[in-house]
Design a protein around this nucleic acid. Structure first.
Lengths: 135, 135
DNA sequence: TTTTAAATGCAACAGTGTTGCAAATATAAG
DNA sequence: CTTATATTTGCAACACTGTTGCATTTAAAA
């Protein structure tokens, strides 16, 4: 689906900033940081615009935010909370790349009585395929 | 064990700031934010001092940091990485409290060939026992 | 084409992560 | 107990982030 259609489907205005963000994320294998997305983007926008664009896209479920660590945030396409796509995320501490692992789903955890679960985040840290090969 | 002994055991100087932080965390059921720790602390220290104290305590494994979300960070006693205490963390989106769940361990995930795991983080969001009772 | 509701850019502010350096302090040595 | 030394602290400073209000611009509806 084209970025512009994705926006329309979510009743969002088709602005070049939003379309660009979606396009950049879509054309990468790994989840990207805001910095990386900005660099790959054609236009240049104010940081407030990015801030609000990311927020809007995330709220509507077009993208999801992956918080690895305090200052390590990545974005990938698709909703995370809604639906069944509750996959794990892998963070390579060598190349700092983050990948969604669709084959690894977050576990069903048994919590003490009285607790209600709304969301489960599973983040796996280590070294990736690619970095391990190079050794 | 007394905070001062904990520090000595890790070859760290016994300063009032470090001891205070350990004492405050130890006397609370839930994991605390830096703000909360500061408020419960007797002395008043520069934010740089806090910054470095937390870092030192974390590096030595006396405390561990729990990153729930970008601006939601909590601290609890004990090392997280080293040893077997790889427990999950629960975040209540009503009261914002974070609890270590020693009974819920992070799962052994099957990753594609070539990947090496060093650490696994499992964060569960929802509403806690206490908040659900009050409804 | 006009209207209007939403998005943008700019300025501004508080807060955070981080470093370098001089002054204070905890421990080790005598 | 006193002195020496290696650490820790407080302060200043800087860049960066999250966030808001407001005037201007722009996308979509009429």
């Amino acid at each position: 689906m084209r970025p512009s259609d994705i926006l329309s489907n979510h009743n969002l205005k088709r602005t070049s900033c939003r379309e660009g963000i979606i396009k950049v994320i879509d054309s990468n294998e790994v989840a990207l940081s805001e910095q990386e997305i900005r660099q790959q983007l054609e236009g240049n926008y104010d940081r407030t615009t990015y801030f609000r664009a990311f927020k809007t896209l995330e709220d509507s479920g077009i993208i999801h935010k992956i918080v690895i660590d305090n200052q390590t945030i990545r974005y990938a396409l698709g909703a995370y909370n809604k639906g069944k796509s509750k996959h794990a995320h892998f963070y390579c501490s060598k190349c700092q790349k983050v990948k969604c692992m669709p084959t690894v789903l977050t576990p069903e955890v048994p919590l003490p009585d009285g607790y209600k679960i709304s969301e489960t985040n599973l983040i796996i840290k280590g070294t990736c395929n690619n970095c391990n090969c190079k050794e």
